[in-house]
């Protein structure tokens, strides 16, 4: 596994409101995640997990700090990246609680939409999509609609979609929330495999303790700061 930095965050702060209404969510958070790492992000509800995920994903602007995605500094007390949407399109894959596939597109169209937007030819995008669907063992459903697939199958398609643009980072927001224990473990194992084989850094927000042993590191928001826990610690949550 290459030890290359995929995400580097320095003194990241996020506040909401002003003066007496000021709410500090994240304060001076600093951490680094390597390519090929599968990291769990845990914290009680409302602690700022999604906010952190959205700041790393260039969706929500931090109050201050620095963010690097790979070699590119995208935030330095203001967005330094000209087009944050382009950054998302080219560098980041997203997986959500539900699959959120576009219902009017079939499976392969869902997977090829982003690469085609990035200028990849339809033929090339389809070839890559089929490879991903085969990799995720769902290639036989390539021309089905998402309404014809089970929840687990759709979540695998959503993973294929997140990988279709060859991202350096995957941000997953509780991808196993809608799945039973067995399927949750199956999905996390799959993400682990992807992180290693595709050399992608994956941050997964989760509340599910049962899947924590499968992560390389556990990142927790504690008192607005980021702390890492080792897997052998008795009590994580």
């Amino acid at each position: 596994m290459n030890q290359q930095s995929a995400i580097k965050v320095k003194n990241l702060t996020k506040n909401f409101g002003k003066d007496e209404n000021l709410v500090k969510v994240i304060e001076n958070a600093s951490f680094e995640i390597q390519k090929g790492e599968l990291v769990a992000l845990i914290a009680p509800s409302g602690a700022g997990k999604t906010t952190l995920l959205m700041m790393i994903g260039c969706v929500q602007e931090p109050t201050s700090g620095e963010i690097w995605l790979g070699e590119e500094k995208v935030y330095d007390n203001k967005w330094t990246a000209k087009d944050t949407r382009k950054i998302r399109r080219e560098k980041i894959g997203f997986i959500f609680q539900a699959h959120y596939l576009i219902p009017f597109l079939n499976i392969i169209e869902n997977v090829t939409l982003l690469p085609q937007t990035n200028g990849v030819s339809e033929k090339e995008a389809k070839q890559k999509a089929m490879e991903l669907l085969e990799y995720l063992e769902i290639a036989d459903k390539a021309y089905s609609m998402s309404s014809q697939l089970s929840g687990g199958q759709n979540q695998r398609v959503a993973i294929a979609r997140a990988l279709a643009n060859n991202p350096e980072i995957i941000l997953a927001d509780e991808p196993t929330a809608a799945l039973d224990a067995q399927r949750s473990i199956s999905v996390i194992k799959m993400l682990k495999k992807i992180a290693i084989e595709q050399n992608v850094a994956i941050i997964t927000v989760t509340h599910d303790e049962r899947i924590l042993p499968y992560f390389d590191r556990i990142m927790k928001i504690e008192n607005r700061a980021i702390v890492f826990h080792k897997l052998d610690e008795d009590k994580i949550l």
Partner: peptide, 16 residues
């Protein structure tokens, strides 16, 4: 709207 938000989050340009 949900699909549109997802498309925007994924980075699809507004023009599309």
């Amino acid at each position: 709207m949900k699909e549109i938000s997802i498309m925007k989050l994924m980075g699809l340009p507004n023009s599309l």
